[in-house]
Design a protein around this nucleic acid. Structure first.
Lengths: 142, 142
DNA sequence: CTACACCCTCTAGCTACTGAAGGTTCAAGC
DNA sequence: GCTTGAACCTTCAGTAGCTAGAGGGTGTAG
């Protein structure tokens, strides 16, 4: 039986995060000590490790919820889990492509900056005039 | 003079986003019509275009605030703007490296999935057992 | 002068946590 | 048995960067 702090240490999670996962129903409500403190068993440790690992691979909590559900039903088809992973892979590849374009543009900005006054700073100039860009970067963020 | 809707269309921004930028002080309070509706001039159009463009390049609103400030003072040194852009470039490159590692892992998961039952799904198996991973992916998110 | 699209403010919600306030429980040492 | 201090509890608020909705007012074309 683990306290929440011990579980946190073992999984590299913050205590608050564990409580948060419980709150949103990603982890089951654990047993409690006589005084009302959470006590965890190995099954909960495994579940949290699964969640954390999936988060590290960039899966959303919603995706993880689905994966956990699949994991809980060993006789279900694997297709769904595969689809979720493929979706995630696609997203990662899209983000990479987008970042690649940004990198190109930023490199160009930085390299062309001569280090004088801001009045003729290439960085600011490029930001001011989108038409100077070589790449399309329509979507924001990512 | 542009209405907020026209400005939104010209810059590819949502109306609410423009009001949000005003609220957090990224855009100045514009003039108003007799009835109290916002009316924008070209200088505000330029400023918003700058903001949007910087956002598309992944700059945070805080970084953009600094860039705008530099842009407003043409006699300041360019060094700061350059530093901000370099910081951004570095961040982009770090994110790319991270995504590259994730991509590798996800690809492996997906390729090894045979499409049977979830009980022997490679995707779920890898998520369950971190030790199967070839890469370190310590930080969460991306 | 009447539609109707557009605008207004205000509030709440999203993701995935994180931090803090104010109080209780646990385990070790004496 | 008692004290101490770390760890635990709940609840609320905040982060970034928007986005959506309610409930109402404005502007303009026909």
């Amino acid at each position: 039986m683990l306290t929440i702090g011990a579980l946190a240490k073992k999984t590299g999670t913050k205590v608050q995060t564990i409580r948060y996962y419980e709150q949103i129903g990603l982890l089951p409500e654990p047993g409690r000590s006589a005084g009302g403190q959470r006590r965890y068993s190995n099954s909960e440790l495994d579940r949290l490790a699964f969640v954390r690992h999936a988060r590290q691979l960039g899966f959303s909590l919603d995706a993880i919820r689905e994966l956990l559900d699949l994991s809980d039903h060993p006789d279900k088809s694997c297709t769904e889990a595969d689809a979720i992973a493929r979706r995630q892979l696609k997203q990662v590849e899209q983000r990479m492509a987008r970042l690649e374009a940004l990198r190109t543009e930023l490199k160009r900005m930085v390299h062309e900056c001569s280090g004088g006054h801001t009045s003729d700073c290439r960085v600011l100039e490029v930001l001011r005039d989108h038409s100077e860009c070589l790449t399309n970067h329509d979507e924001i963020g990512a």
